[in-house]
């Protein structure tokens, strides 16, 4: 996993839909599942979702702006954009009549009180991390653990980011032995599928053997 990620953007999904084209689902026969992709701002959640999604990543997004009220702003200057709200999600149809919905969920602490709502119905969470600022992922990992949601860690290997062995990273993240850690390039489709496989395997281990 220490190979340097390819600098090119990941292979686009085979059927990258053209803008404006809506990709519909069959009306019956599918099982829909929800996965949470989380992590700190800028860690690559959108990239991973875009790499995997068969639909253009849809944002429920607007560029939000700061209020222009206040003594500095009374001159009628146009507002400055200050924050972008986005909930990204993507869709991945998996052979066997399964459809995975990947929800990019902010890993910022201000959203934590609301996580139960966000994570409701999810199979598990993929927590993304960046070795250049590993600690940014700690709060969301704490929170996911406290919620008891099964998760795997995907370390997004940004070009130029320092490389570390899985063991080193596991130690610093204080991962439980059974919690998967995968190093990946979120732009790479195989890598990204690998993170989902790791998560699914982990979910499987937590299910009772017999039902």
């Amino acid at each position: 996993m220490d190979s340097v990620p390819s600098p090119e953007p990941a292979t686009a999904p085979a059927a990258e839909p053209r803008p404006g084209q809506v990709r519909y689902l069959p009306a019956t026969g599918q099982t829909l599942m929800k996965l949470i992709i989380t992590g700190p701002f800028g860690v690559g959640k959108t990239t991973l979702i875009r790499t995997l999604s068969e639909i253009p990543t849809l944002h429920t997004e607007e560029v939000m702006t700061r209020s222009s009220v206040g003594h500095d702003d009374l001159k009628g200057l146009p507002e400055k954009a200050t924050t972008t709200v986005a909930v990204d999600f993507g869709r991945l149809t998996v052979p066997g009549d399964l459809v995975l919905y990947l929800f990019g969920t902010p890993g910022q602490e201000r959203f934590f009180p609301l996580w139960q709502d966000i994570a409701r119905g999810a199979l598990g969470a993929l927590v993304m991390a960046d070795t250049r600022r590993l600690a940014d992922s700690f709060p969301v990992m704490d929170m996911v653990e406290e919620e008891g949601l099964p998760y795997a860690v995907a370390v997004n290997r940004f070009p130029g980011a320092p490389a570390h062995s899985d063991d080193t990273l596991r130690k610093h993240l204080d991962l439980a032995p059974q919690t998967p850690l995968v190093q990946c390039d979120a732009r790479n489709r195989r890598d990204s599928i690998g993170t989902l496989i790791a998560l699914a395997e982990h979910v499987l281990t937590r299910l009772p053997e017999d039902d």
């Binding site: 099982t31 991945l92 052979p95 066997g96 399964l98 299910l207 009772p208």
Partner: peptide, 15 residues
């Protein structure tokens, strides 16, 4: 259940 997740794994690996 395990069957569903196993189906998912088979599907993911077949992508």
């Amino acid at each position: 259940d395990r069957t569903l997740i196993e189906r998912l794994l088979v599907g993911l690996r077949a992508l």
